[in-house]
Amino acid sequence: MKTLKRDYVHVTPLPDVATVLELLAGWFEDYNVHHPHSGLKMRSPREFIAAQTATA
């Protein structure tokens, strides 16, 4: 949650709840598909899972 707030919520104008709800799905998609994670060796969760699946 801290990363979501820092990288998405705090840098986006959010005038109302409807705006947040519209943006939320896109934020999660970006976080899981594109956002690098230091704990995953700077890969996104999808990249990390794909690499694990390919080697298994």
Rank of each mutant, 00 (worst) to 15 (best):
M1N: 09
M1F: 08
M1S: 12
K2Q: 11
K2M: 08
T3V: 07
T3R: 07
T3D: 06
T3Y: 04
T3H: 04
L4T: 02
L4M: 09
K5D: 07
K5W: 09
K5Q: 09
K5L: 11
K5T: 07
R6C: 02
R6G: 00
D7A: 01
D7H: 04
D7G: 01
D7K: 01
Y8G: 01
Y8P: 00
Y8V: 02
Y8N: 01
Y8S: 00
V9G: 00
V9I: 12
V9L: 09
V9R: 00
V9K: 00
V9F: 10
V11K: 08
V11L: 04
V11S: 06
T12P: 07
T12M: 06
T12W: 06
T12G: 07
T12A: 07
P13M: 07
P13F: 09
P13Q: 11
L14W: 09
P15K: 15
D16V: 08
D16C: 13
D16I: 08
V17N: 13
A18W: 12
A18F: 13
V20C: 08
V20K: 03
V20Y: 10
V20Q: 05
V20G: 07
L21F: 12
L21T: 10
E22K: 14
E22D: 14
E22P: 01
E22V: 10
E22N: 12
L23C: 11
L23V: 06
L23Y: 08
L23S: 09
L24Q: 06
L24R: 07
L24A: 14
L24F: 14
L24T: 10
A25W: 08
A25S: 15
A25P: 04
G26L: 06
W27V: 03
W27P: 00
F28M: 14
F28G: 03
F28A: 08
E29N: 07
Y31G: 00
Y31M: 11
Y31Q: 04
N32F: 05
N32M: 05
V33S: 04
V33H: 04
V33A: 06
H34K: 13
H34L: 13
H35G: 00
H35C: 02
H37T: 01
H37V: 01
H37G: 02
H37I: 01
S38W: 10
S38T: 09
S38Q: 13
S38R: 11
G39P: 00
G39K: 02
G39M: 02
L40P: 01
L40Y: 02
L40S: 02
L40H: 01
M42C: 06
R43V: 02
R43I: 02
S44T: 10
P45A: 04
P45Y: 00
R46N: 05
R46C: 05
R46M: 10
F48C: 11
A50H: 13
A50I: 09
A51K: 13
A51T: 07
A51M: 11
T53S: 14
A54L: 15
T55Q: 12
T55C: 09
T55I: 12
A56W: 14
A56T: 15
A56Y: 15
A56P: 06
A56N: 14
A56H: 15
A56C: 15
